[in-house]
Amino acid sequence: MTTGFIAGAMYLAILFVGSVPFVLLATIIAVITLLELAAMKHISLRSPGVLLSAAFTAALVFAAPFLKGSEFQTYFIRLLVLLVLVLLAAVVFSKNRFQIEEASFLFFFVSYIGFSFYLLAQLRLESLLLVLFVQITMWATDSGAYFVGRKLGRHKLAPHISPNKTVEGSIGAVAAAFLVAAVFQFIIRRPLFASAGLFVTVTLIISVLGQVGDLAESAVKRHFGVKDSGDILPGHGGFFDRFDSLIFVLPVLYLAGMIS
Rank of each mutant, 00 (worst) to 15 (best):
G238T: 01
F72T: 10
L132Y: 07
E71S: 13
F66P: 00
I188W: 03
L87R: 07
L132T: 13
A39D: 14
G238V: 09
I43A: 09
E168T: 15
F243E: 08
S170F: 11
V252D: 04
Q122F: 10
L253T: 01
P65R: 11
R97K: 12
A219F: 00
V61S: 02
V131N: 07
A256N: 02
F62A: 08
I32L: 07
L253V: 09
E217R: 04
R154I: 15
I187W: 10
P251N: 03
P234D: 01
L67E: 01
R46N: 15
F16M: 11
V110I: 03
L215D: 07
L120W: 04
S218W: 04
Y146S: 12
F72M: 08
V167L: 15
G169C: 08
V249H: 08
L52E: 11
A181R: 08
T74G: 11
A216K: 00
W139N: 12
G149T: 09
L130N: 04
V110R: 14
L179A: 13
L15Q: 09
V17G: 01
P21M: 14
L250K: 00
V61K: 12
L125M: 05
V131E: 00
D228L: 03
A7I: 12
V208Y: 09
L250C: 00
T201M: 12
L233M: 11
L128N: 10
L35I: 10
G225W: 13
Q122R: 15
S260P: 05
A59Q: 14
T137K: 03
G144S: 01
G169F: 02
V226S: 02
G114S: 10
R222V: 03
V200H: 07
F22K: 09
S162H: 06
V17W: 05
L246K: 00
I14K: 13
V252K: 07
K221E: 10
S44C: 07
L204H: 13
L192K: 02
I187A: 01
Q135E: 12
T74P: 08
R78G: 08
F199G: 10
I247S: 01
V86D: 06
E71K: 14
R189S: 12
A181N: 04
T27A: 10
V31K: 08
L246A: 07
I259F: 04
A145Y: 13
V202M: 04
G8R: 01
L204R: 05
I100R: 07
L192N: 03
